[in-house]
C-alpha cells in the first residue's frame, strides 16, 4: 500500500470520509499532493473529477507543494479596515515573494485567508494555523525570525 493509501484508508468506510482523508493528508504534508487525489478517488470509488472537485472546492485545502510555514493573512473586512494591506506589503518585502508564492528554500508560503475569527485583535495572520493578532508591519521581522 502506498503512503497515500495508508493515510487515506482509515477514513475509507466512514460516510463522507473523503474530507477527513484530505485533512489527514494535509496534516501530514502541509498540502494535498496531487497524486494523492487519484488514490482517494480510487479508494472512495468516485470519479477522479469528483475527488478533484471536492479538494478544490474548499479554501483550507491546497493542492501542490507549500512551504513548511504557511502564513495566511486575513483579507476580510475587519482586518482590511485595520490595515492588513500594510502587513501584506511588509511580509512580501521581508520574504521577497508575492502573495500566493513560496520562498525558494521552501520555508515560507504566503496565502490569503478569509476571516479566522480572531477579530478582537486585527490585523490577524496565522502561521501553520496558529493565530498572531494585532500584527503591525514593524513586528513582521520578529514574527518571522521565530520560525526556525
Amino acid at each position: 500500500m502506498s503512503d497515500y493509501a495508508k493515510i487515506i484508508s482509515p477514513y475509507k468506510d466512514l460516510p463522507g470520509g473523503i474530507i477527513e482523508a484530505y485533512h489527514a493528508l494535509q496534516n501530514k504534508y502541509n498540502y494535498i499532493p496531487e497524486d494523492a487525489i487519484a488514490v482517494a478517488a480510487d479508494m472512495f470509488d468516485i470519479s477522479l473529477s469528483q475527488a478533484y472537485g471536492v479538494a478544490t472546492f474548499y479554501s483550507y485545502f491546497k493542492i501542490g507543494p507549500r512551504g513548511r510555514y504557511v502564513i495566511r493573512i486575513c483579507e476580510s473586512a475587519p482586518c482590511h479596515v485595520a490595515g492588513a494591506d500594510d502587513v501584506i506589503a511588509a511580509l512580501e518585502k521581508e520574504l521577497g515573494i508575492s502573495m500566493g508564492e513560496t520562498t525558494e528554500d521552501g520555508k515560507f508560503t504566503l496565502e490569503f485567508a478569509e476571516c479566522v475569527g480572531q477579530c478582537q485583535g486585527t490585523p490577524v495572520i496565522t502561521i501553520n494555523s496558529q493565530p498572531y493578532v494585532n500584527v503591525e508591519p514593524e513586528k513582521v521581522g520578529e514574527i518571522l525570525a521565530a520560525c526556525k
Binding site: C74, S76, A77, P78, C115, G117, Q118, C119
Partner: peptide, 11 residues
C-alpha cells in the same frame, strides 16, 4: 462553521 468576517462568538 462560523464564517462571517467579524464574528467570533461561536469560537
Amino acid at each position: 462553521d462560523e464564517g462571517d468576517p467579524g464574528a467570533f462568538m461561536d469560537r
